[in-house]
Structure formats: C-alpha cells, structure tokens
Amino acid sequence: MPYDTSFSPTPRPARRRRSLLAAAALGCVCLIAGCGGGSGGGAAAQPREGGGGTSSPPSLSPSPAKGGPSARATSVPPSSSKSASRTVSGPLSGKTVVIDPGHNPRNHEHTREIGRQVDIGTTHKECDTTGTSTDSGYAEAEFTLDVAHRLRALLQAQGAEVVLTYDNDRPYGPCVDERARIGNRAGADAVVSVHADGSAVGNRGFHVILPALVHGGAADTSKIVEPSRELGTRIAGLFVRATGSAPSNYVGGNTGLDTRKDLGGLNLSTVPKVFIECGNMRDPKDAALLTSAGWRQKAAQGIADGISSYLRG
C-alpha cells in the first residue's frame, strides 16, 4: 500500500485540507525567505532515551557541528524560557518551538555524570546517554546538532520563536528531565527531539516516537497524548515527502509511528512533544544519507514542514 504523505491523523476532511494548504504555504515562504539553504541531495530495539546504539562515539572537539550555521543559538539555561527576540514576521509569528538535539558530543567524556539516575515519573533512568555513531565515526550528537541548526533557521524564517535545549554550550547533557523542563518552561507550542537510531544492519528508515498515556509521580501525559500524535503524524508524512525516505521497516509496523512510555523526555513533558529517529546510523545505506549535508537539509525541511502544518492547523 502506498505511503500516505498527507498523513491526516483523523477523518476530518476540512482539517486535512488545511494541512495540505499549510504545507503549500510553507513552500512559498521558503522561496521568498531563502530557507532551503542546503547543498541538495540526499531503536527502539534498545530502550534508551532516544537512541539504540551501544557503542561509544569517537572523541569529538567541542566545536560547532559540521554543516551548521556560523551563528550560535542563544544558550538556554534551565531558568530561561525564550530565545533571543526575533525580527522576522511570518505564518508562525507568536509560536514557540523547542528543538531538542539528542545527546551531547561530549557525553562520552562524562560517563559518571550522565550515568546518574533521574526520576522520569514511572521509573528512574540515566541522565543521558552517549548516543550512537556511524561505522565511519560520525556521531549521533553531531548529527542532531546539525539538523537542529538547519531546523531552527527554517522555523525562524517563518517567524517562530525557537529555543534549543542546548547548543554545544555545556560539557554534557542536559539530563532527560531537564530537557523536558526546558520545553515546559518555554510554554512551547511544539517540541521535537531530534535523534538517529543505532539498530542492526538492514534495519532502515525513520520513525517518530509518540508519548504513551502515562500517569505516575511527576509524569502525566493525559493532556499531550492527542496533540502530540497529531504533531508526530504530520511530521512523519511530510518527512517522507521532503526526504523520500521510507518509514522504519523494523519499528512501528511501517507506519513511521511508535508509541513509548519509557522516555523521560516525553513522560515529563506538559506540552506537545515527539521524538524523531531520522534513520539508522548502523545501516550503511541509511548512514550514507545521514552523513550527507544535502540530505540533512531535506530532513530539517521535512520536520519544519510537519511542525508548520501542525501549528497552522
């Protein structure tokens, strides 16, 4: 059955039409604002916080991620909620989006700190993990920062206020509970945590992780399950359109969607939030995409299109 890139989450024709119109409008914005600036081109198996890889990435310097813009994002300490004032007006003016680049390039230098347990409501988990990497040594944390930078530029060009949970401005983390708090304190209209998976060779494709209905301790997702599903569904459909990638052949039954209750970043969120695993770094074919700057621009565009479609209704 062909994959439905319109991805209408509910049988409401009017809403679906608005979604498609929003996607078309986004293309116009990008033509005017020049927000498609790439070079063109192209885990769940391990219950870790947004990444299934078990091997440590190579040593990385704390310099900005490859392929990202030269300007750094405003750093967002836990007590802060908003990014620097923007001057661009557009279809997303008045909306706040939090981008959460998974892991940290220097987590592997701080295994004791990231290994400490934090409360995720239903249980305790590690503060963070190192993430995975390609066989050639391209780290997931470097990938996620690069895509986050590209995504930020696309959203800001449409007038959104964009907050990054971190921008290579701290030695490790943030911990998963802090990542959730940053989105909550920002009063975000949408939060997307960017990742890449570390599964077996032959496992290919992307999947979007949605929050399950969880109620325990500090976790209560009852108010965000439905809006998060709509956000994730729109991102999945428009990610296919922008990248040409297929949904995961090993998670989610070829729907590109997976629901989990073991991720603190989702359990502790009080605003609509999803994770996206953009591909499998351990598969050579997926790795070739993930290491391509042109494909990363397409990935950022697909995520931005999904966010815009969701926020514009």
Rank of each mutant, 00 (worst) to 15 (best):
P9Q: 11
T10V: 13
R12V: 15
L31R: 12
I32N: 04
A33L: 05
G36F: 04
S39N: 07
G51N: 03
T54C: 03
S55Q: 14
P58L: 11
S63M: 00
A65D: 06
A65L: 02
K66G: 12
K66I: 04
G68A: 15
R72G: 04
R72I: 02
S83C: 13
S83G: 15
G90D: 11
K95D: 09
K95Y: 14
V97C: 09
P101M: 07
E113G: 10
Q117L: 15
T123Q: 14
E126G: 14
E126R: 13
T129K: 11
G131V: 06
S133N: 10
D135M: 00
D135F: 00
F143D: 07
L145T: 02
R152W: 03
A153H: 08
A157W: 00
E161T: 10
Y172K: 12
A180Y: 05
I182G: 06
I182M: 13
G183I: 09
G183T: 05
N184Q: 03
G187Y: 08
G187D: 06
S193Q: 09
D197G: 01
N203L: 00
L210Q: 14
L210V: 05
H215A: 15
G217T: 02
S222M: 07
E226N: 10
R229L: 10
T233L: 00
R234A: 14
L238S: 13
F239G: 02
A242K: 00
T243R: 03
Y250W: 12
Y250S: 14
V251C: 06
G253Q: 12
T255W: 09
D262L: 11
V271W: 04
I276M: 03
E277D: 02
E277I: 00
G279H: 01
P284V: 01
A287I: 02
T291K: 07
S292H: 01
W295V: 01
Q301P: 01
S308F: 11
L311A: 10
R312A: 06
R312D: 08
R312K: 12
